[in-house]
Design a protein around this nucleic acid. Structure first.
Lengths: 66, 66
DNA sequence: TCTATATGTAAAGTTTGTTTTACTTTTGAT
DNA sequence: ATCAAAAGTAAAACAAACTTTACATATAGA
């Protein structure tokens, strides 16, 4: 799975730490997500999508290997 | 987080085992999701939403406590 | 009522998400 | 060039997802 987090953060002018605060996870979790080190839970995806006012599918994308 | 899985399965006439097969998890995982025993990964949410032709937000719902 | 199919549940085990702490590297502004 | 903020990274620890096996309960049809 890939994601758009970095772009969305840029649009909303948020640092990784800002985003982490807003959705209630650690900064390292955001960093790891952006670097595709792990797949977040659906709760996190929903929170992020809500924050950015976009559907989950506009931020997280399935890949062939998923 | 809550979900609509049971209803969506009914609409598409799928058993828990059918759904599990289609998205590549165990039947118990589907059962546990439906009974809100755990929060699935975003990959699973995306796969399920894709299968049911609906956005993730139409199947999985944040609650106050999330 | 008998049987098959679907669902619920539980325990043990493996894998993966997530946190914490802490350090390094990059970037941008002054 | 310097300094501060932001991003990258890593290891240890803990929590949660997910699997497997196995059995119990429910439901519906013959």
């Amino acid at each position: 799975m890939k994601n758009n987090l970095k772009v969305e953060r840029a649009i909303h002018n948020l640092t990784q730490a800002d985003l982490a605060d807003k959705i209630g996870v650690s900064r390292q979790s955001i960093n790891a997500m952006e670097k595709n080190k792990y797949v977040p839970s659906t709760v996190l995806a929903l929170k992020i999508a809500k924050l950015f006012n976009k559907p989950v599918e506009a931020i997280f994308f399935l890949e062939e290997t998923d």
